[in-house]
Amino acid sequence: MKTNKPTLTIGVTGLNAIDSPGPGVAVIRGLREAASFNCRIIGLSYESLEPGIYMHDIVDKTYHIPYPSTGTEILSDRLDYIHEIEKLDVIIPNFDAELYSFIKLAPKLKSKGIHTFLPTLEQFEERHKVNLPEFGVKYDMHVPRSKAVYTPNEALSLEKEYEWPLVIKGKYYDATLAYNFDQVKSSFNKISAKWGLPIIIQEFIHGTEYNVTGLGDGEGNTIAAVPMRKQYITDKGKAWGGISIDDKKAIQLTNKFISETKWRGAFELELMKNKAGDYYLLEINPRIPAWIYLAVGVGQNIPEALTRLAMGWPTEPFKSYEVGKMFIRYAWDMIVNLSEFEKISTLGEL
């Protein structure tokens, strides 16, 4: 059986690992541990210092790809070039900002033999931070009140409705708390300069945060779902340590989310449980989270299952996971020759 395992060539993005790390390296670790296939990993990077580029036991070869803001046409050309050399079977994009382009390109990629397993454009748009209030109404889920604004002054009117602090969120990334209007303005400017408009102003929910990562098959079935509680949080709010938990309510909510939206692909739900025990859905990330290796470690290899779904292979839902396993993240200093940096910076390949 083992000897007959097929080998897949899989392109993976998100190889960065700053204090707000990309999921790429964790995804690849899951893929490398897959029981049902072997893989060759092609890293797809945006910047020359993404650590994954230099991890040669993790990534077989890396290519720079153009930033999402340059548009799908140019991305498509670059992927054609890479595909010609590497013959990609699957691409797993891991950044919010690039998903739109990959979703748009998915049919084109498919026609060239590159498989993806992404949410539909409707699902992707509907779950967007900007549309969260409507999402909550449509699927009958608690969501914090929020509004998309185009000028800092629009936030002024919200001051009367919401209590301080306000959560100021970028369209794709970044979220800060603002305790007064000056802070609203400064966060607004900082975040909008990077990620464009609108900015989302959200009511702050007091409580305990839980996260669930999961995988939907696009027909309404839950293939995987693992809830986690953050134990150690960086000042950017990212989990640096967490533990798998047995939370029936969070799993129920996840099943409801998948069955009602017929979610296709991986995702992460950010939940807040308030004092009354009600769960609020804070955000739906339409991709694998950076802490995905915990899910792999407790028995649900989501990257593997996602790859199988992308290939159109039969994929059984995971039935259980180990509760009470922790992940503790650590930073690792690699020693790298300048010549490698030179290669990726000047040739765009390593």
């Binding site: 720079h64 153009p66 548009g71 990726i344 910076s345 040739l347 765009g348």
Partner: peptide, 10 residues
Amino acid sequence: MPNKFGMRTE
């Protein structure tokens, strides 16, 4: 910084 490659075909 966007590397020059990323911008090449823009």
